[in-house]
Computed example of a mutant assay.
Amino acid sequence: MKAVVLALALSFGATGAYAQTAAATSSCKATATEKKLAGAALKSFMTKCEKDAKASCDISAKEKKLAGAAKNSHVKKCVGDAVGT
């Protein structure tokens, strides 16, 4: 029950700006480890963090005017770095 409440709090409390800041300073996995997340809370946090990282990386690719394979490669590496694969 606590995990579900924590997952809901994280999904409503975390904003895109926070996720981008967290991704810029450390990976999603490192942040989740620091927060000692597990179970549903971990899954919820990682899903949101990855989604926010993808949006940020798509914007970055657009700013760099990348297209096709270059864009896909950039986004894949960018998301991987942010998530901490």
Rank of each mutant, 00 (worst) to 15 (best):
L8M: 15
A55E: 06
K51F: 11
K35S: 10
I59Y: 07
A24P: 01
F12A: 15
V5E: 13
T33C: 00
K35W: 08
A7I: 00
K62D: 11
E50M: 09
A38W: 05
A55C: 00
G13R: 06
L42Q: 11
F12L: 15
K62Q: 13
T47P: 05
Y18V: 04
L66Q: 07
G39L: 05
S56W: 03
S11N: 15
S60D: 07
A23N: 05
A22I: 02
F12N: 14
A70V: 01
K54H: 12
V79G: 11
S44D: 08
K54G: 11
T31C: 04
S73E: 11
G68A: 01
V75Y: 07
S27L: 01
V83A: 12
D81M: 05
V79F: 14
D52V: 03
K29P: 01
M46L: 14
A38D: 06
K43L: 09
K71Q: 15
C78W: 15
S56E: 04
L10G: 11
G80D: 11
Q20N: 12
F45R: 03
Q20M: 03
K36I: 00
C28D: 02
K65Q: 07
V4K: 15
I59F: 09
A14N: 10
L8T: 04
G84W: 05
S44E: 05
T25F: 02
A32N: 05
F12D: 11
S60A: 14
A23L: 00
T25M: 08
S73T: 11
C49F: 13
K76I: 07
F12H: 15
S26G: 04
H74C: 11
A30E: 06
A19G: 04
S56K: 12
M1C: 12
K48Q: 12
G39P: 03
V4Q: 15
A53T: 00
A30R: 01
G16T: 05
C57F: 06
L6Q: 09
V79A: 12
V5S: 13
A69I: 13
C49A: 14
K35T: 03
E50C: 12
A22D: 02
K35Q: 10
Y18C: 00
G80W: 09
A24D: 03
A61E: 00
L66T: 07
K65I: 01
